[in-house]
Computed example of a mutant assay.
Amino acid sequence: MGLDEALLDALYHIDQHRHLFTDRELVALRYAEIVTTSARDVDENLWDELQSHFDDGEIVELTTVIGIFNFFNRFADALRLDEA
């Protein structure tokens, strides 16, 4: 899909590879992690940072994509689709 494999590998250790990501990407990744693990923990500081990099429509789109992929993962896990 045109993505650098090293960049994909860096996603597993973002803190060690922060230099590979833009500030915009880092805030999106942090947002995705928090929405995935505990969405109610999105605080004012994170929201302010999101708004400094994304407009409202982009935040809605980002949240939608995060939610859809969380759905796909939970659906596949519940049905044990990876074991089929």
Score class of each variant (00 low, 15 high):
residue 69 F to K: 07
residue 53 H to Q: 14
residue 24 R to C: 10
residue 20 L to W: 05
residue 84 A to Y: 14
residue 15 D to M: 03
residue 22 T to Q: 14
residue 2 G to R: 10
residue 37 T to F: 07
residue 9 D to V: 05
residue 42 V to H: 02
residue 71 F to S: 04
residue 75 F to C: 08
residue 54 F to N: 00
residue 77 D to P: 10
residue 66 I to Y: 01
residue 55 D to E: 12
residue 65 V to F: 11
residue 81 L to Q: 09
residue 61 E to P: 00
residue 38 S to G: 12
residue 73 N to T: 09
residue 2 G to F: 12
residue 1 M to C: 01
residue 21 F to Y: 12
residue 51 Q to C: 15
residue 36 T to D: 06
residue 25 E to L: 07
residue 37 T to S: 14
residue 42 V to R: 02
residue 42 V to S: 04
residue 42 V to I: 13
residue 67 G to R: 06
residue 17 H to E: 04
residue 48 D to H: 14
residue 77 D to E: 13
residue 77 D to S: 12
residue 83 E to Y: 09
residue 5 E to H: 06
residue 37 T to A: 08
residue 19 H to D: 13
residue 18 R to M: 13
residue 54 F to T: 01
residue 26 L to G: 02
residue 64 T to C: 15
residue 16 Q to V: 05
residue 16 Q to D: 15
residue 67 G to E: 04
residue 72 F to T: 15
residue 20 L to G: 02
residue 22 T to F: 08
residue 39 A to K: 01
residue 70 N to V: 04
residue 69 F to Q: 11
residue 57 G to C: 01
residue 13 H to G: 01
residue 17 H to P: 01
residue 12 Y to G: 10
residue 20 L to V: 04
residue 23 D to A: 13
residue 41 D to Q: 13
residue 4 D to H: 10
residue 28 A to F: 00
residue 56 D to G: 05
residue 29 L to V: 02
residue 69 F to A: 00
residue 36 T to Q: 10
residue 73 N to M: 09
residue 8 L to T: 06
residue 43 D to Y: 07
residue 8 L to K: 10
residue 38 S to K: 11
residue 34 I to G: 02
residue 24 R to W: 10
residue 52 S to W: 06
residue 53 H to W: 11
residue 58 E to D: 09
residue 44 E to W: 03
residue 36 T to S: 11
residue 26 L to Q: 07
residue 27 V to Q: 07
residue 62 L to C: 11
residue 83 E to Q: 15
residue 72 F to P: 05
residue 72 F to D: 15
residue 62 L to A: 07
residue 36 T to R: 11
residue 81 L to T: 05
residue 57 G to H: 09
residue 34 I to C: 05
residue 28 A to R: 00
residue 35 V to K: 12
residue 62 L to G: 05
residue 37 T to G: 01
residue 33 E to T: 03
residue 7 L to N: 13
residue 47 W to M: 12
residue 39 A to L: 00
residue 56 D to L: 04
residue 36 T to I: 07
residue 50 L to R: 03
residue 51 Q to T: 03
residue 75 F to P: 01
residue 15 D to Y: 03
residue 61 E to D: 10
residue 60 V to R: 12
residue 72 F to Y: 14
residue 20 L to P: 00
residue 67 G to C: 10
residue 72 F to G: 13
residue 78 A to S: 15
residue 56 D to K: 09
residue 65 V to C: 11
residue 6 A to I: 05
residue 64 T to D: 15
residue 46 L to P: 01
residue 27 V to H: 05
residue 4 D to R: 09
residue 38 S to T: 01
residue 10 A to T: 00
residue 82 D to M: 11
residue 51 Q to V: 01
residue 45 N to P: 04
residue 75 F to R: 06
residue 26 L to M: 02
residue 83 E to M: 14
residue 9 D to H: 13
residue 28 A to V: 03
residue 61 E to Y: 06
residue 57 G to T: 04
residue 80 R to T: 07
residue 24 R to I: 06
residue 28 A to I: 00
residue 31 Y to Q: 02
